[in-house]
Structure formats: structure tokens, C-alpha cells
Design a protein around this nucleic acid. Sequence first.
DNA 1: GATGAATGAGAGTTCATTCAT
DNA 2: CATGAATGAACTCTCATTCAT
Lengths: 206, 206, 206, 206
Amino acid sequence: MSRMNKDNLSNQRQRQIIDAAIDVFSRKGFSEATTHEIAKEAGVAVGTIYKYFNNKRDLLVKVVTDTVITGPLIEILQKRDDVDDDTFIRSIISDRLNFGIENIGRIIPLLSEILRDDELSKRFADAVLKPNIVIGERYLQAKLGSGIVRPLNVQITIRCIIGMLIGFLLIYRIEGKKSPANSMRREEVVDEMSQIILHGLQSEKT
Amino acid sequence: MSRMNKDNLSNQRQRQIIDAAIDVFSRKGFSEATTHEIAKEAGVAVGTIYKYFNNKRDLLVKVVTDTVITGPLIEILQKRDDVDDDTFIRSIISDRLNFGIENIGRIIPLLSEILRDDELSKRFADAVLKPNIVIGERYLQAKLGSGIVRPLNVQITIRCIIGMLIGFLLIYRIEGKKSPANSMRREEVVDEMSQIILHGLQSEKT
Amino acid sequence: MSRMNKDNLSNQRQRQIIDAAIDVFSRKGFSEATTHEIAKEAGVAVGTIYKYFNNKRDLLVKVVTDTVITGPLIEILQKRDDVDDDTFIRSIISDRLNFGIENIGRIIPLLSEILRDDELSKRFADAVLKPNIVIGERYLQAKLGSGIVRPLNVQITIRCIIGMLIGFLLIYRIEGKKSPANSMRREEVVDEMSQIILHGLQSEKT
Amino acid sequence: MSRMNKDNLSNQRQRQIIDAAIDVFSRKGFSEATTHEIAKEAGVAVGTIYKYFNNKRDLLVKVVTDTVITGPLIEILQKRDDVDDDTFIRSIISDRLNFGIENIGRIIPLLSEILRDDELSKRFADAVLKPNIVIGERYLQAKLGSGIVRPLNVQITIRCIIGMLIGFLLIYRIEGKKSPANSMRREEVVDEMSQIILHGLQSEKT
DNA sequence: GATGAATGAGAGTTCATTCAT
DNA sequence: CATGAATGAACTCTCATTCAT
């Protein structure tokens, strides 16, 4: 078998394990998940997991990295600036909100793991939060300079906006089926959130 | 010993255990926390924990209920309406943000537990989220009727605002000491967040 | 309070505890019975049990001694010999069988405890088995001398007869409601057993 | 390693555990026996026990089933009828008595467990008691029809006979070294018991 | 004497990890 | 490389026993 095939096979095995782990960690949480269940769901033997990961925790780190951290988060932010600001912000909100809602069953449980683990928190901070914040800050700073936005503290503001996204998803998850977001078109939700960011609560007249 | 004293002693013991549990659960998370460590920290024997709680999970439920759920959340919201809207919103933000930051080391880890436990989620939803949302919705609805705020979807908007608070705290926790909120006066942060809610990003001129 | 009353009260307490213990030990077995349950059933505090008995095991010993050992076993055996042999044997069988069946729910569970405990076995052997065997052996020996019974080994025979009684009760207990003894008059059962002892299986003609 | 070998190894392990369990349960009783002691005696780790049995109680059930229930009880009973009745009964008594005495250290302690456990009692009733009783009843019924035995209640009689065997062993166990059966040839004991069954106590002359 | 809250040793059980096959 | 039986440390929970009141 060629090197290529071997690698493919190896990668495929690893993929199976990670996918199974995502599922089990999401359903049970890290501590309640057992290596046996992951192995079973991956269709491999327990020992095989340890060929690809040093231990259960390393597998969690990989899962979190793959699922939450290596998201297509930044892509849009880096996209062209040739759109007007409203459209730009709306498209970011739309992208992140849809991604979040689509993957709510994985994102929130894994976020839960991140919140209780210093190393994961740090990784998440460095790989997800920071880059997004930086990009957001730059964007806002630019708009601030051009007088398009009101004078504001860029650092706090961007954290509020990202926080709103995360917090909204969190509430969405906790409310479950009862969430009013379930009985609306997704685009409406995106619109509402975008409007808050752009105009706050104030009446147009103000 | 009088009945009164007995009850006091009993309550005190329970308090010791709950306080220790809050601490250990916050530091280690539920699964990694051991009953022995909680007992040690509470200064009681392991068996004593089981005199007051049926099992470890019941203790968690009590801890979450006491710490997160039974908060003075609603009080301010029910306060008089004789203040202008800006002041009202600002005072709520101030209260919740300060409470959250002050107790960040407990709130977020316990939130993490809530997120992975359906029963806790439901309790949190019913006892914390729902009441606050309802009050917020009513408030917003009233303002909406009087034309003070722009036309908006009340349900989504209130969830965005509460989400912003939660999400901001979450990011604050994850960033740890690096958070720029640490190098600002608390009131500034409150102001910024209030401004976003009230005016969004838009320039005053708009 | 007079000395007499004190003693009575004390004896009464002890009686309460023993009665409760008989009940709980019979239902749960020694190991599964808890001192709390016994105390509760006796209507006293756990600590009170330890005022009357050194420990749980001592309570068991007392219970076994009271219930199984100090039975009215010997009385009949020591009765007058002025009845004919058939009547005598029948009356013993009747007495023991009725006592056993009446108290089956206590006798067998406590026998179970005796069987697994060397000290209890020894006590039972000395206080119950031996006296009865000795009396039986003497009786049989006398009858043997007078030619009324066939030549036989007195020691083995008496153990077979007492064994039959015990074993029959044991089977009765294990079969529970399904036992055919339940659908017969007690006297019939006594008759059958007596007949076996007196005549074995053989036809009258022999 | 071939499938065959694996199975053998697996069976062997299970055997080790069961044998150790028989020993420890017999010595200590179920409740006082610890999984650690069983594991130690079996020469395996505690966890290994749980690979083969769901829990301690399942192990007990298996032990009882193997030791007491799956006995060669019925074989002889089903044997040829071409022997005369005296010989037939004597051979059964001989077989059961020898088996019982040989295994007295296991049989009685396990019987003790059976007596205090409803499920085990039921299993014992169904798997051991009932089949033997049924066979005995049929045998006796046949003899009854042919006038070889005196008129008797078949159901009670067979329970008395089996009871005699069990009860004799029970007394033998309780008396321990002091039992007079120890200072006799085994065959003598068998003869005596057979004679009681066949002729009762009565003198030949009667 | 009576109480029952407190104790803590010790139980059954689980499961991440290893390693001979 | 893959396997999964075996491991044993460590967990939660129980309960006989004590002792201050």
C-alpha cells in the first residue's frame, strides 16, 4: 500500500474517532463520556483511540479545536469591504447565527467544556476570540475614524457584539423548543439582531 | 439545646457544605469535584454531606439554585418607573454586570454545568431566564406602544440584550486578566453597553 | 420511681428493640438490616439500642437466642410417659410442626443466620439441638431395650427425625404459597409425618 | 490466538472467579464477602470480575446455580427401574447423602443464602426442589398403586423424605466435628436413613 | 438514660489506560 | 497497526458506632 493510501486510511480512522467523540462529548459531556462508547460509535477498538491520541483529554482538545475553533469564522470578516456597512454587518451576523443555530447541539456543549478548562479557554481565546475581536476592532476603529459610527470604546463594543451572538445562542439552547426564534424565519432574527447593533433601541426620530 | 439552636446548627452545617460545594464545583466542575474534597473544605465528614443531600447531584442542584437562580435579578426590574428610560436601562446593566463580574468565578462555571444538564437548564430557564425575559418584554412593549423605541420584535430584542450581558461576561471570563475591561472603570463599561443598547452603533447625526 | 418500675421500663425498652430486631432481621437478614430501621421500628433512637446491646451482632445473638433457642421445645418431651408411643410421637410432631409453621417467617430466616455463623451455630447446637437429641436418644434407647422398635442406630435415627422436621419446614418455606401443605388440614400433615416415622413406607401387610 | 483459545481463556477466568466466589461466599456469606477478597483469591483484579458478571449478586446467583442447582440430582432417579425398591431408595440416599457430606462446606452456606433471597429461593424451588419432588411423587404413586407401600399422602411423604435428607445434612453441619456420623462408616448412615424411610421405627414383628 | 447528628472506614462499582496477541 | 481483556486507582455512597447534649 502506498504511503498516500496509508495516510488516508490513518486520517480516516482519526476522523471516525473525532466524529464519534464530538457526538459523545456533546451528548454526555467530557467526564460522562467513556472511551468505550466513543470507540463503539467510531467502530474501532478502545486501544485504537490511544494510537491516535495520548489520552481522553487530548481527544477533547482535538475535538474542541476542530469543531469550535477551526470554524470558518474569520473568512467573511476578511472578505471584501466593497459592501456597505449595514450589509456587511448583517452578513456577518447571518453567517455566525446560522452556523451557531445549525450546530447548536455541539457548539454549546463544547463551549461548556471550554468554560471549565483553563487550557481550553486559553486556546479558545487565542484561536477564536482574539482573531475575531482584533478584526472587529480594526473594522470599528476605521469606521470610528470616518465618523460613520458614534464615538465609542472599540474594545468594549466589539466584545458586546460578539457577546450578544454567543449569549443569544446560549439562550436559544437553554430555551430549547420553546424559543420564539423557532417560530420565525431565520432572516428575521438576523435582521433584528443587526438592527440592534446598528441602531440600538432608539426611535428613528431621535 | 433548644429547638432554635438545633435548627441554626443544622442550617449552619448545610451552609458550610453548600459554600464548600460552590467553591469546589466552581474550581473543578461537577464531575471532577469529589465528595471528599467538598467535605474536607466544609470541615465535615463525607457522611455528613449525605445527611443534608441525597447525593452529589442534589448538592449541585442546590448550589446552582442558590447561586445562580436565586439572584436579586428581578428586583430592580420591578422598581419604580419614575426614572427616565436611559437611567433605568443603565441601572439594570450596571446591576447585572457588577453582580456578574463580582461573582464571575462562580457564575460561569455553574453556567457551564447548567448548559450540560437538561434538568438544570430547565430550572434555569424557568427560574431565571423566563421571568427576566417576561419583564423585559413587557417593558419594551410599553415603550414600543408609546413610540419611544423604534419598531422591533420584542421577543428577539430582549433575548439579544440579555444575551449580550451573558455573552460579555462569558468573554470576560475567558479572556481572564487580559480583558480590557480590567483596565477600565466599571462605570465606563456599563456606559458603553448601555449606549449600544440605546443607540446601537450609529452616529448621532443619523 | 421505684427500682421495680425502672427495671420494668428498662425491660420493656429492651423488649421493644428485640421485637423490632426479630422483625427486621427476618425480613432483611442480618447484614441488610440497619440499626436505624430497627430503632425506627422499635420507636427508639439509634443510640438507645447501644445502651442495651454492645453492638448489632449482640442484638442478633439475643434475637436468635430468644426466638429460636429459648423455645418450648423440651417441655413436651419431658412430659409424662403415661401415653402410648404413637400418641406421644404424634404430639411432639404436632407441637413442633405447628410452632414451625406458625413462625415460619422468623424461624427460617434466623436459621439462615445460624447456619452462617459459627458462634450462633454452636449456641444453637448446645441450647436446642443437643438437649432435644439427648432426650430423643434416651426415649428411643428405652423403646429399643423393650423391643418395641426395631434394632436401629439411635444417634442417626434421632437426627433423621429431627432433620425431617427441620427439612420439611425449610421446603415449606421455599415452596411458599405453592406448598401442598397449604391446602390440607394441619392435622393431616402431622399424621403423615408421624406415620412415616412410625412405619416408614412399608405396607401394613409386611 | 485462535477463537478457541480465547474462549478457553475466557471460560477459565470465569471459572477462577466462580471458584473463588464459592469459597469466599461459603466462608463469609454473601454480605460479608467482598469483591476485593474474591478477586484476590481468584488471582484477578477487581475490575475483571465485572467483565464477567454485572455485579456481586449476579455472581452469587451464578455460584448458587452452579453449585447447588446444577447437581446430578436427577440422574439416578431416572435410572433403570430394574432394581428392587430397597436397593433403589438406598442408592438415592447414598448418592445424595455422600454428595451433601462431601460438599457440606458449600451446600449449607449457599442454602443459607437461598433461604434469605426470594429470587434464589424461587430458582432453587424450580430447578432443584420441584424436579426431584415430581420424580419422587411419580415413583411413590406407582408403588402406591401396586400396593407395595401403605396408603399415604404422596405429596407430604416425598417432602418429608427430601426434608429428612436436607435436615440431616443441616444438623450434620451444625454439629460439626461432634456429629456421631463422623465416627461411623458412611454406609452405615445410609443404611439407617434408608431403613427409616422403608420401615419407620416399628419392630419387624408388628 | 435517651437522643440523633456526626463520623469515617470500607463497601461496590466504574473506566482510562495498558500491552500481549 | 489494531485489538479488547485486564488492570486497579479512585469514585460515590452506606451505616455501625460514638458522644455531646
